Amino acid sequence: MKLKRFSIGYRTMKTAAGAAAAIYVAQLLQLDYYVSAGILAILCIQPTKKRSIRAAFSRFVASLIGVGYAFVFFEGIAYHPAIFGLMILLFIPVLVSLGFSDGFVSSAVILLHIYDSKNLTLDLFLNELSLMAVGFGTALAVNMYMPSIEKKLDAYRYDIETLYSTIFKETAHYLRQGDSDWTGKELMESEALLRKAKALAYQDVENHVTRLENKYYRYFDMREQQLEIIERILPKITALPVTIGQSSMVAEFMEDLAAHVHSGNTASHYLAKLESLKTKFAEMPLPDNHQKFLAMAALHHVIEEMEDYLEIKSSYKGFTNKKTSDA
């Protein structure tokens, strides 16, 4: 069996630092069960800032509910393993119904402290509150640092634009030649790349507490919508029964488009070109046979689809770009 390459990620380092810091602070404050502060911190170190905040809130509320259960069951009935089991049996469904199920483990830590002490006093309650404050607070403080992923998102952006450019070039080649040895692998690569890019962009959204979305996520979502159109166009082009004069006109448009696939914020230039293309189509004589008629109809449909492709881009603000036209 091949072993995975040994590596230490930034989240691993933050978990180690957070746990150590939480234990150290709790020990300085001379809290009982101070090592548990490290456990609470570990439970709150999450991949993103928003998830870390949600985790801390959920665990804090769940722990407070747990203290209430401890008071009813331990103080009201008995400190006994059977009672502890019964309490857990009734405690978990309540957390699930309230949406705090992920706080069970941290609340169990608090419950075990109370069970071990055999006496729920005000001092113990304040001790547990302090442990939560130190553990969750340290985790939040440590998790406020998140390395920038913009360079990776930019790399995805450029790679997708390169793939789209290649797809348009190959489409133009097919329109001119009526044949091609293109495998279409760029389509599958685009789909896979967009999935990864959107996931990473969503992670970037989660790392900004007050941000609901970001320009990268909107960009990749826009490109995903465009890819759906491209995937509808290609079968129509490859199914053209004959090559007609309009084919080279559409091919020229596709070649021009391929040279200008970038992240600019206007597609008006190419929408105007499409309008001009449609006008030329209308001025040309009608096909003299059925095969040519089918080819012309298919190309006209391709133009309409490309209008939708560009409309999607024109409604997108885009990234700052010195170019004046884009796809």
Rank of each mutant, 00 (worst) to 15 (best):
residue 120 L to I: 10
residue 82 A to Q: 13
residue 77 I to P: 09
residue 89 L to C: 07
residue 87 M to L: 14
residue 93 P to G: 10
residue 94 V to D: 13
residue 118 K to N: 15
residue 124 L to V: 06
residue 95 L to Q: 12
residue 94 V to G: 14
residue 76 G to K: 11
residue 79 Y to H: 11
residue 121 T to V: 07
residue 96 V to S: 02
residue 89 L to I: 09
residue 124 L to Q: 03
residue 87 M to A: 10
residue 122 L to C: 01
residue 107 S to M: 07
residue 122 L to A: 02
residue 113 H to F: 09
residue 109 V to G: 03
residue 99 G to D: 10
residue 89 L to Y: 10
residue 85 G to N: 08
residue 104 F to I: 05
residue 82 A to Y: 09
residue 122 L to P: 00
residue 120 L to D: 05
residue 111 L to D: 04
residue 93 P to S: 13
residue 98 L to G: 11
residue 107 S to A: 10
residue 86 L to P: 11
residue 110 I to S: 13
residue 122 L to D: 01
residue 88 I to D: 09
residue 92 I to N: 03
residue 113 H to A: 12
residue 92 I to V: 05
residue 88 I to Q: 13
residue 82 A to C: 01
residue 81 P to M: 03
residue 123 D to F: 12
residue 117 S to Q: 12
residue 84 F to M: 06
residue 120 L to Y: 08
residue 98 L to A: 12
residue 100 F to W: 02
residue 123 D to H: 10
residue 121 T to E: 00
residue 116 D to Y: 05
residue 89 L to A: 09
residue 117 S to H: 07
residue 94 V to R: 08
residue 105 V to E: 00
residue 77 I to L: 13
residue 80 H to A: 08
residue 90 L to F: 15
residue 102 D to M: 08
residue 88 I to G: 04
residue 117 S to I: 05
residue 77 I to C: 12
residue 107 S to Y: 12
residue 83 I to R: 04
residue 77 I to G: 08
residue 117 S to F: 03
residue 108 A to P: 02
